[in-house]
Design a protein around this nucleic acid. Structure first.
Length: 255
DNA sequence: TTCTGTTTACGGCTGC
DNA sequence: GCAGCCGTAAACAGAA
């Protein structure tokens, strides 16, 4: 069966399930994770059919994101505020589709109870940490303006507009995933394994001074990096690639 | 207020 | 017939 092309659909409904469409969108992003709004945009950009009746299919898509264990909701980093979380694919969900075909899943991806509980606990912990981070930041805000630990994000506005994927590439630790107690205090302790020294703090080209980020920010980044490293450690290359040529656009199975 | 996320329910389709 | 996958609708809560 020839692979369907974008042009062959026109305004017809593509033969992909919402799970497949969402997986495509997530895999199309450099960070392998997208907020809901970007998943919508990916689908409407490529499939004209979904430019109509948006409420209907978007409701279905959200249902699938929540209902299926293959999608993992990753809380935003506290220094990257915005609406909604990021969504990624569970690493163990890559073999869902038969031979990379997106038309029908080989089997439903289902996490075992323990795995699901463990993942939920970690994500819950991260969300709690983010809230605690914001609370602490708010309570210390009046002193932050001139303080040496003022978060870099308040002094170095981003150049790219929202939505923006978490800056995980530079945060991912090398080697085995470090484990430490997940409490606010534990995370705020100096961590010589992953905490960059103030001298090594990245210097934003538009910042007048290379200020060290706050310990809270570092702790949040560190935990985010640990979480994402765990999720991505077993990541395989994408099974499919969206190819745009002058003749046609289609998904191809990577060899 | 709007968007995001969760949950429940139901019916159609397909394969065994 | 049954189980599993899928699409859709709807209600609701919480966050931005």
């Amino acid at each position: 069966m020839p692979r369907p092309t974008r042009e062959s659909y026109g305004d017809q409904k593509p033969p992909f399930s919402y799970i497949a469409l969402t997986a495509m969108a997530i895999w199309s992003s450099p960070e392998r994770m997208l907020p809901l709004s970007e998943i919508y945009r990916f689908i409407t950009d490529r499939f004209p059919y979904y430019r109509r009746n948006t409420q209907r299919w978007q409701n279905s898509l959200r249902h699938n994101l929540s209902f299926n264990d293959c999608f993992v909701k990753v809380p935003r980093r506290p220094d990257r505020p915005g609406k909604g979380a990021y969504w990624t694919l569970h690493p163990q969900a890559f073999d869902m589709f038969e031979n990379g075909s997106l038309l029908r899943r080989r089997k439903r991806f289902k996490l075992h109870k323990g795995e699901k509980d463990s993942l939920n606990a970690e994500l819950q912990a991260l969300a709690s940490f983010n809230r605690a981070f914001l609370a602490r930041q708010a309570s210390t805000a009046p002193n932050m303006s001139g303080g040496m630990y003022a978060p870099a994000v308040t002094l170095c506005p981003r150049l790219s507009p929202e939505p923006e994927a978490p800056d995980t590439a530079a945060l991912l630790p090398v080697g085995p995933r470090p484990r430490r107690a997940f409490t606010i205090d534990a995370l705020l302790e100096p961590d010589t394994r992953t905490t960059p020294s103030p001298q090594a703090a990245p210097h934003h080209p538009h910042c007048p001074l290379p200020l060290p980020p706050s310990p809270y920010l570092l702790a949040a980044q560190r935990y985010h990096a640990e979480l994402l490293a765990g999720l991505q450690q077993s990541c395989l290359p994408p099974l499919w690639t969206w190819r745009d040529t002058s003749q046609f656009s289609h998904y191809t199975l990577n060899s």
